[in-house]
Design a binder for these strands. Structure first.
Lengths: 219, 219
DNA sequence: GTCTATATCGCGATAGAC
DNA sequence: GTCTATCGCGATATAGAC
């Protein structure tokens, strides 16, 4: 609405640029050394200001972490569910999307640091007063909805019809993925998240390799 | 080995008694106000010493939390798997034990504070340097083993034989329970952990109401 | 007004005196 | 075994620079 005064040649407001600079610094330091090992003063120094300056742009250290993870989350969500970030985008077929979801699980195995941050934060955010509480409620709501739609689509086109409640399966699948991440972080070598998730999907009667089938463990 | 010197009439060493006193205070305060909201100085004051005195008995605040949860954990484990705490104890039948496991899930719904502490700690403990790391690795190892044995026993006595890998099912069941706790803490009114766990068990071909059966969602 | 720095607080944790 | 310093931390309020 308000017309911009004459003397502001920069394309981005200055505050927005330092905000991004802080976020970039936080992303790099958190990914390298974890959350607890990095102080606000470290991040501030890396971004070229004092720790109080950082706290002017972000209400606290946790909020900084939330925004770092949110950026990664948006990228992942866009890969599997284009409908979330770009509502009009035509989505690939349900079979392909299920395959992408499983691949996301496998891909997470490559970034244990970020998976650990996410797992820790989702647990802390169960506190209603936590700065990330609303964010995670929304995140689960959206993911649950998308996965339920996906399951319903696969259920409908199953040759021998499968007996699955999409809402129930969505909650179970998300819970399974979260719980497996904890076990995998504790024993990375002993847990193959992709195999365990696929086994569950097959048991639902959904084939993560292509379409849908009857049910059971293997062929 | 070392013989006790003459002047020690108390039945418990003094240090052991203050240790227990500190643990009791921590249990009460953590359960009432949560982990972050309670300081070491609060606990120390409640137990009648200074915060440095507490840190003489426990290496840190997290370790204090670990021991608090460990005491509750032992009680729960003894209820469902008597074999853990009392190796010689004859266990009830597998059907009964599965039912007890499901009841434990339902019972947890009554203590959201402790469930939240446990969820948060298990996430933090994925860090190999965390004081609770070893504890949680051991905990999952034992639980996985016990659940796998339980599944195997149920599988063997199933009338129409069920196609289940006990080790796979154990990991999945524990992951599901953990993940559902997070979702339940976020939306207590929207998640019925017992129903979702039972549905999964039925899908494995295990009947949490009594024996074992073919599989599927409902009767 | 927008942004950054200084000052202060209680916190968890450590070292050393008693 | 307990206490008295002391440290750096996250967080807040407030004052100063652009």
């Amino acid at each position: 609405m308000s017309a911009r005064p004459e003397g502001t040649p920069r394309r981005l407001p200055k505050g927005e640029r330092t905000r991004t600079r802080i976020l970039d610094s936080a992303t790099e330091l958190f990914s390298r050394s974890g959350f607890n090992a990095v102080s606000l003063r470290d991040i501030a120094a890396h971004a070229g200001l004092t720790h109080a300056g950082v706290l002017h742009h972000f209400p606290g250290k946790e909020s900084l972490l939330i925004e770092v993870l949110d950026r990664r989350d948006r990228a992942d969500a866009h890969a599997v569910f284009p409908g979330i970030t770009h509502p009009g985008t035509p989505e690939p077929g349900p079979g392909v999307r299920l395959r992408m979801l499983v691949e996301l699980v496998a891909r997470n195995s490559g970034t244990p640091g970020l998976v650990a941050l996410y797992t820790k934060l989702s647990a802390e955010a169960t506190d209603p007063g936590h700065p990330a509480h609303h964010y995670f409620r929304e995140r689960y709501r959206i993911l649950r909805e998308e996965v339920a739609v996906l399951v319903e689509a696969l259920r409908a086109e199953a040759d021998p019809p499968v007996d699955v409640d999409p809402a129930v399966a969505a909650r179970q699948l998300l819970a399974l993925m979260d719980g497996l991440q904890t076990q995998w972080l504790l024993e990375p070598e002993a847990v193959d998240m992709e195999v365990l998730v696929c086994d569950f999907l097959l048991r639902l009667g959904l084939d993560p390799e292509g379409g849908a089938r009857g049910g059971g463990l293997s062929a």
